[in-house]
Computed example of a mutant assay.
Amino acid sequence: MPMKTTSLAFFFLAFAFALTTALGRSIAGAGDVEPVLDTDGNPVINGGLYRILPAPPANGGGFIPLTLDGETCPISVVQASPGLGFTMFIQVASNKLVDYVYPTDSVDIIFSGRPVCTDSAKWILKFFSPVPAVFIGEEDDRTVAGHFGFEKYEDAYKLVFFPERLPGITWSLGISPFGNNRLVANEENPIKIVLQSFNRGKSASTI
């Protein structure tokens, strides 16, 4: 009995050590990852307001909800045309209890205002012809379960989507090559973006 008790105690001690070591490595690894930075070089604040803009020298504005293809409410997320004069601020909220947003974090992206004809300003991805596209509004049977995120892309970032039913898979997002400036799943040509803080862009008008 004493030998069995000792062996059992040793087993649990070894298991606890291995678990603690693994957690320590995980925490240390997370601390080594640089948070997403805004255009001023500051970490993107979890829950903060930002404009998502094309990285220079690309043309075009930020993202807005618009009425397309016979919709009765502006629920399609599109890139504003150059010189349009306004883009919407967006709340970026990580699903983790952290101060800043990190690359590959799952995040909610929510327009700072919403059209009166829809109940939600939160971005969702829906199956759409010929590729999945980004909308706001209520979820339905076309909604793809998952979350958005940011990944380092060249000297800036790109928008990505993590489909819940495909663990370990990410879809890059870009502007539709089929017109209307829709934001869609576009692996071949992702849009390179930067995030501009609300504190810097207060002069921008919103809808």
Rank of each mutant, 00 (worst) to 15 (best):
R25L: 11
I136D: 03
S205V: 14
A16Y: 08
F17Y: 15
E188F: 01
F63Q: 05
T21G: 06
I169C: 06
V92C: 08
F11Q: 10
D141N: 14
F86I: 06
A204R: 11
N180M: 14
L159A: 02
Q79D: 06
F150W: 06
I90Q: 04
R114A: 11
G31H: 13
I52P: 01
P56K: 00
P115D: 07
V194M: 06
E139N: 14
E34M: 10
D69Y: 12
G41V: 09
A22W: 09
A80I: 07
F86R: 03
S76F: 07
S94I: 00
R200F: 00
N199K: 11
S76Q: 10
D40I: 00
V194I: 14
A185T: 10
F111V: 11
I90D: 03
G146L: 03
I191H: 03
A9W: 03
L183P: 05
Q196T: 05
K192V: 01
S106I: 00
I27E: 11
I52L: 15
Q91Y: 07
E139I: 13
I175R: 03
A16L: 08
T206C: 10
G149W: 00
D105Y: 07
I27L: 11
D140Y: 06
L49N: 12
T6D: 11
K96Y: 14
D155F: 05
A58N: 01
L173C: 07
L13F: 12
C117Y: 04
I64G: 01
D141R: 13
L66S: 15
T21V: 08
F127Q: 15
P2M: 15
F63G: 02
Y102K: 04
K4I: 12
V107T: 08
T104L: 15
V116W: 09
G31T: 02
K96Q: 13
F17T: 14
V107G: 04
V194P: 03
D140C: 12
V98S: 14
P74Q: 08
V131Q: 04
L125G: 06
L195P: 01
G29P: 01
A55D: 01
S120W: 10
Y157T: 00
S94M: 08
A55K: 03
V33Q: 00
H147A: 15
L8N: 13
I207G: 10
N42R: 04
Y50T: 08
L183Q: 04
I191T: 02
D108M: 07
D108R: 15
G174R: 02
R182D: 01
A121E: 08
G48H: 01
V160W: 01
I90S: 02
N95M: 09
G168C: 13
E34P: 04
P177A: 14
G168D: 13
I45M: 02
P2S: 14
R114P: 00
P57T: 06
S94T: 09
T104E: 12
K126T: 09
A121G: 13
P74A: 12
Q79T: 09
A14S: 11
